[in-house]
Design a protein around this nucleic acid. Structure first.
Lengths: 194, 194
DNA sequence: AAAATGACCAAAAAACAATATTAGTCAAAT
DNA sequence: ATTTGACTAATATTGTTTTTTGGTCATTTT
């Protein structure tokens, strides 16, 4: 059995348990047992439990990033891309249960160790949304003075509603409203002259 | 000493302690001691601690309502009113510390008893924002098909950012972005034709 | 050498018991 | 009609013991 394969098995097992029970109710022992290994081997591949969780989280967010990148780089006009981006973002993050747990980091200090992965994701999104708006401006679909302000507003709004949506399970209830929100944001950026 | 006065004193004292220490870390005894009364008298005027807190909360929100009503009924065009409404709402609620505590009701079941007061406030806001948009539509400043959808979006957004803003103390950090958010929402409703 | 083990330890969590606070009651006093 | 304060039951806190679990490491296996 080659090293790389075991590492993958560990992350798979960890993903399974962290997704189901969360960080604190998952034990290193059960992650190891599930792949018929001794607990010690986890520490051969990962420094500690927190680092293993971060790896799981990173992979979860990487697949979200990949999907979002596809949208950003698609050949459509920017306003459609922006709307698609916002809706897909929320749809994908809705299913990213380990990401949900990291939202608690804003309340409880015991989750501080996910800071880096979260910041990385926020930075990624800032870049992507900036790209969309810049392209839209260049192509004439979007008419705004300050792109960065608009990006900040969009990020504040989509981040702001995450807690009600994901931690309070109001995603289904809000689904229609989210669509309308996306439409409104897009309309506010749209070039006015006909 | 007349009944009504003592009741007022109780609420004043309760406001002081609830605002400073929150619901659970305030004791009925200290509320009573502060006005040199026996604890029992609180139960002559209020059924229990929860009802007393709800009274404090109600008064806090009543003064917010009063300010917001002034804005809604002012003689300006509706888009300016809407922006003013959103900004003032957040500014006033930022200072409403007992309201902040009720936001925890979405996370912790032990706060369920504030449900009625919160729902009442939400209903009030729904009515007010509807009024603003209807007036704007009538006067021609606003051009939207479905007023109710727009109201829902606005409420979702302003409610959604409450937790980051008030419980995570990011009000100062977000202040500018909030202003830009209000501008964007207003712009998305503005009648397009010149 | 690289990978894996499992006994081991310290620290954290859970369980339990003992103690202290506090919400709420009520008969009596004002 | 209002207020008191002793009382109680329930809840919270504190201290103690037991169990669980994250992490280490000398040893073994591949």
């Amino acid at each position: 059995m080659k090293e790389i394969e075991v590492k993958i098995l560990i992350v798979e097992s960890a993903t399974k348990y962290f997704s189901k029970f969360g960080f604190y109710k998952t034990t290193m022992d059960e992650i190891a047992k599930h792949i018929h290994k001794a607990k010690g081997v986890l520490y051969y591949y990962f420094k500690n439990k927190e680092e293993l969780f971060n790896e799981v989280l990173k992979q979860e967010l990487n697949s979200v990033k990949a999907e979002l990148s596809k949208i950003v780089n698609s050949e459509t006009d920017s306003l459609i891309i922006l709307k698609e981006y916002m809706l897909t973002r929320l749809k994908l993050l809705h299913k990213a249960v380990n990401y949900h747990e990291t939202l608690k980091a804003d309340f409880f200090e015991k989750y501080l160790f996910v800071k880096d992965v979260r910041e990385d994701f926020a930075e990624f999104e800032h870049t992507q949304i900036t790209l969309i708006l810049k392209k839209g401006k260049k192509e004439g679909y979007i008419n705004i003075k300050n792109i960065n302000s608009a990006v900040n507003v969009i990020m504040m709004v989509v981040n702001g509603i995450e807690i009600p949506l994901f931690l309070q399970n109001k995603y289904a209830e809000y689904e229609n409203t989210i669509d309308e929100l996306a439409t409104m944001i897009v309309n506010s950026l749209r070039t006015q002259k006909k």
